[in-house]
Computed example of a mutant assay.
Amino acid sequence: MATRTIAGKTVAVNEEGFMTNPAEWTQEIAVEIAKEEGIEELTEAHWKVINFCREVGAASGKAPTLRTITNGAGITTKEMFTLFPKGPAKKVAHIAGLGKPEGCV
């Protein structure tokens, strides 16, 4: 298993760069990954989605799909694409320290 240092912390990642142990995640890591993904600042709306995804991930062991996020977090698909452009479910899973959602390429 590969490792990577993000925000001063060494974490386990898979071949695509997704964290493999959600317990290693911190908010500081989320901020760094978001910047890598082209999101300069995480707003309250971003954190609402990130925290929802982490809750779902902790309960199910998997990153939620876009439909699960929009239904559960009370956010529209359009808002998701505004917050997390170009592949929002995959991008938020990466930022939230979860694996790649099923069905994402």
Rank of each mutant, 00 (worst) to 15 (best):
I33G: 01
W47K: 10
L42T: 06
E15L: 10
T10G: 03
V105R: 14
I29N: 02
G61I: 12
I69C: 03
T3K: 13
F52L: 02
E32T: 15
G103D: 06
G61Q: 11
G103K: 12
T76D: 07
T65R: 13
C104M: 13
G8E: 08
C53E: 00
E37I: 02
R54D: 04
G72Q: 10
I69M: 10
P101M: 08
I29L: 12
V49E: 03
V92R: 04
K9V: 15
T68F: 02
E15D: 14
F84T: 01
L66S: 11
N51L: 13
R54Y: 08
A23E: 13
V49Q: 07
E40Y: 08
E41N: 13
E16C: 04
C53G: 04
A7L: 11
T3G: 11
K100N: 07
L42E: 05
I75Y: 05
L66F: 02
P101W: 06
P101Q: 08
T70Y: 13
M1P: 09
E44T: 13
C104K: 06
I33A: 02
G99P: 10
K91F: 00
T82L: 13
N14W: 06
K86S: 14
F84P: 03
A58H: 03
V92I: 13
A93K: 05
I75F: 04
N51E: 14
M19R: 04
A59F: 02
E32G: 02
R4V: 10
I33K: 03
L83D: 06
K90F: 00
A30T: 03
E36I: 03
K91A: 05
G61N: 09
E79M: 14
V56N: 00
